[in-house]
Design a protein around this nucleic acid. Sequence first.
DNA 1: TAAAAAACTGACCGTTCAGTCTAATGGTAT
DNA 2: ATACCATTAGACTGAACGGTCAGTTTTTTA
Lengths: 199, 199
Amino acid sequence: MKRRKDVAQIKKDIAWNTKELFAQKGYAATSMEEICTVNNRSKGSIYYHFKSKEELFMYLIKLSYEEWIASWHAKEEQYTTSIEKLYGLADHYVDDMENPLHNAINEFVSGQSISAEMMEEMLAIIRIPYTTCKNIIIQGMEQRELKKQNPDDLMYIINSLLNGLSTLYYELEFTEIRRLYRAGIATILSGIQNTYEKN
Amino acid sequence: MKRRKDVAQIKKDIAWNTKELFAQKGYAATSMEEICTVNNRSKGSIYYHFKSKEELFMYLIKLSYEEWIASWHAKEEQYTTSIEKLYGLADHYVDDMENPLHNAINEFVSGQSISAEMMEEMLAIIRIPYTTCKNIIIQGMEQRELKKQNPDDLMYIINSLLNGLSTLYYELEFTEIRRLYRAGIATILSGIQNTYEKN
DNA sequence: TAAAAAACTGACCGTTCAGTCTAATGGTAT
DNA sequence: ATACCATTAGACTGAACGGTCAGTTTTTTA
């Protein structure tokens, strides 16, 4: 009863092969023909495994975020303090930056033809990194490494910073970008305001 | 010798009418037919004023950023300290957030069919807010309001934070978002790390 | 007021797209 | 060997796309 090939694995392969395309060109501008090309597969084959472009995209998004959170949990164990974890999280964002599906997702959900439940599903996926960040923050406050304040606010702020830095992809070298991510965390930790009076 | 209508004004009208469309649906997913609809104009009329969809888009981007920097310069005068200006800049980002062309721009430049000089032009436009931010930072350091450090680093960090926060558009209320922008600046100013030893 | 120029229209064109259909392929069980 | 069926290939479809153009209407010119 065993199949020639593991169908689930084929679906994953197709999705991963397609990630770079969606990440670089966006959802609408990526054609099914191009998807066929990068997969060395025919249209019939792709449509045998996915009933639509939309479904393939959603599948890829889910897969990517599952991968993201899984590899973070693996990394997280090697850090102890929450401050180390914040720097580690910054690194994790950098490692993931080469294929930023973020823009494609925004384009996808902004397009009119999206059902309510799909929207809900997408929002739930997007919230994963927020939760990850929030947990670190809460730990940091419990351990008194961080000042006590609204954890949700801080979660949004740190996540926005790390997301926003990804736009430097086209402007700076990779090592420079990594340095800036860490500098961003350092800045948020220690602040930039001069505590001495002027003069 | 005066024309019935000012051609330059018509071009601007068309561009502004189209802004929301590009902002919400992205570049590729916005069709010329839709652009005609929101302008109450025929295809021929649009193409009479713009030689291509691409040109219309570039024109809109330029216009938007000119508007952005102009209205900022008007606001800036009412602030004195650089810290006030940073909060003011955050507000300015919020005011501009309803039609974020940012994603459309990313999609546009990532699409393959873009000439080198157009790419250069686009990058120059995108750099406008960076420069704006940098000037505030330099002033802040000169006035000793801010700690001395690499101004470029800080410019990238603050800009990334303000850009990144815009993705909260779909998740939070407008007043909540405005509060978070200010909280973001406050956080960067004073830092989050506890300066007391733990225990 | 007649002629020229500017502004505009919408049918039309070639191309590209997501998705469909059917025939071919090849592994597996009997 | 044969029958079966999961899988694949790629020609095909209809809709939608960006862009063009011959021709009409409106305004300016002189």
